Simulated scan of single mutants.
Amino acid sequence: MRRTGEPERGAATVVTVAFAGVLLLLGAALGVVAALVAAHRTAQSAADLAALAGAQTLAIGGDACGAAGRSAAANTARLTACVVEGREVRVGVEVEGPHWLGQSADLTAQARAGPATVPPAGG
């Protein structure tokens, strides 16, 4: 039994360790979220550049999907899809995402490029 006026010993240590653990877990989770956002931005940029490279190569009569694949690889991505429809190129790319606690999903992005379409006059 505790006597009146005797200070409690060690209670603040337990609370401090618990708060430190929570802050450490929160910091790690925020780090993973930041890495996911950065990887998604990388994937979307690689997809946009691959689509533009493919459309430019298609415009001069070359292999659009080959150019898109080289552009994706130069931007640390893998070309997963390439479709040429008329003068338009649609691509899909994949980049490696952060792997934390067994998470193995990679991030994907799609883009299309081709000549601009002008809406009909008066419409």
Rank of each mutant, 00 (worst) to 15 (best):
T117M: 14
P115A: 00
G10W: 03
A72R: 06
A113R: 04
T80V: 10
V84P: 08
A81Y: 07
A113F: 09
A113C: 13
N75E: 05
H40N: 14
V22R: 00
P115C: 02
L58Y: 06
L79T: 02
V118C: 01
L30G: 15
A72C: 07
L52N: 00
G5H: 05
A51C: 08
E96Y: 07
C82Y: 01
A81T: 10
A50C: 09
R41V: 07
H99K: 15
D106M: 11
G122C: 09
G54Q: 01
S104N: 14
G31Y: 08
A50L: 02
G114P: 05
D63C: 11
G97K: 01
A105Q: 13
L49K: 00
E8T: 12
R112L: 10
A121D: 12
T57W: 05
S45M: 05
V32G: 08
A53Q: 00
F19D: 02
A105L: 14
A11E: 08
A11T: 14
N75V: 05
A29E: 05
G69I: 05
V33N: 03
A113W: 06
R9E: 14
E85S: 15
D63A: 13
V22K: 08
R9W: 10
L26Y: 02
W100A: 13
P115T: 04
L24E: 09
E8D: 12
V95Y: 02
A67Y: 00
I60R: 09
S104W: 14
R78L: 10
L26P: 04
L36S: 05
V37L: 15
V33T: 03
L30W: 12
L79F: 06
N75P: 04
G123E: 15
A73T: 07
T76G: 01
P98W: 04
L107Y: 04
P7R: 11
G66I: 01
T13V: 15
A39N: 00
L79C: 07
A111L: 07
V84N: 06
T42S: 11
V37T: 03
A50R: 07
A67K: 00
V15S: 04
G122D: 12
C65T: 00
A67W: 02
A72S: 02
A81H: 13
A64E: 02
V83G: 04
R41K: 07
L107I: 11
L36C: 13
A12N: 04
Q110V: 15
A59D: 11
N75W: 01
V84T: 11
G66C: 00
A59P: 02
V84E: 06
D106L: 09
G97D: 02
E8W: 14
A55H: 01
P7M: 01
S104T: 15
L36E: 11
P119K: 08
Q44I: 11
A47N: 03
A11M: 13
H99W: 11
A47I: 03
R41Y: 10
D48P: 09
V33P: 08
G122E: 06
G54C: 06
G69T: 07
A68P: 12
P119E: 14
Q110S: 15
L49D: 00
